[in-house]
């Protein structure tokens, strides 16, 4: 696993897993933490050790330093280019996983799942997930998802291709790509009113209730329903 992951971090295909080294996971966690703290503008050694809940935090930190991922000087921490890359990809995988679990599968406890996934996803799969989700700019908690190569290939970088209907601006029209229903009967009812993939739908308004329009039919719906209808802007 260690080889596979390390190789994955370097951007190459991995070998079959041999064993799990908890030290590597600790390194990952610390790098992620540093990235997040830096986003918040408070990356210092003391801050990191304060927020760190991992046992043997300091030892891992000096290991990172020794292996050239980061540099330590007094209270300041600086990620080296290869550390920067590793952290960036970890955060990207974590937040993309969050987005995936939250948007696609409407899963509770997405955080725990995302923590597992960030260690598993290969670069190819990560880019596929990113593309599938329409290169989302933010995680569900609003934190930015570091861009990948796949994102750069698209011109409309900040506009996801596929997004929940709820995220449209009122007045926008889009085509339904897929629907992830909370319940089967909900889907049956909506489909009888024409809400199926392929239909054009306009978000008429969001307040005080969501109103959508299909052809000449206006339907008032719960917000939760519009979160389950995924559309592609036209």
């Amino acid at each position: 696993m260690e080889h596979k992951r390390l190789n994955a971090i370097e951007g190459k295909a991995g070998h079959p897993a041999l064993c799990v080294l908890p030290e590597v996971e600790k390194e990952d966690e610390l790098l992620e933490m540093m990235w997040t703290l830096r986003e918040e503008g408070r990356l210092t050694r003391s801050h990191l050790l304060e927020t760190c809940e991992i046992t043997g935090c300091e030892a891992t930190l000096s290991l990172l330093h020794k292996n050239g991922w980061i540099t330590e000087e007094n209270d300041s921490l600086v990620m080296q280019p290869k550390g920067e890359k590793r952290a960036r990809e970890l955060v990207r995988r974590h937040r993309l996983s969050l987005r995936m679990f939250f948007d696609l599968f409407s899963l509770d406890g997405a955080e725990a799942e995302a923590c597992k996934f960030e260690h598993i996803l290969s670069p190819e799969v990560t880019d596929s997930v990113c593309t599938l989700l329409g290169h989302p700019p933010n995680a569900p908690d609003g934190k930015p998802i570091p861009r990948g190569e796949c994102c750069a290939m698209f011109k409309q970088e900040m506009k996801p291709l596929v997004a929940p209907l709820a995220d449209l601006v009122p007045g926008e029209t889009a085509k339904i790509v897929f629907i992830t229903p909370g319940s089967h009967s909900r889907l049956d009812r909506l489909s009888a009113m024409g809400v199926v993939p392929g239909s054009s739908v306009k978000l008429h308004q969001k307040k005080p209730s969501y109103v959508i329009q299909l052809g000449e039919t206006m339907i008032a719906v719960d917000k939760e329903i519009t979160r389950e209808i995924f559309v592609k802007k036209m």
Partner: peptide, 17 residues
């Protein structure tokens, strides 16, 4: 994965379109 009722409606709507 989706309910049959929905799939059946979807295929009907395709014919309607």
């Amino acid at each position: 994965n989706n309910s049959l009722g929905y799939l059946i409606n979807q295929q009907r709507l395709k014919a309607a379109d």
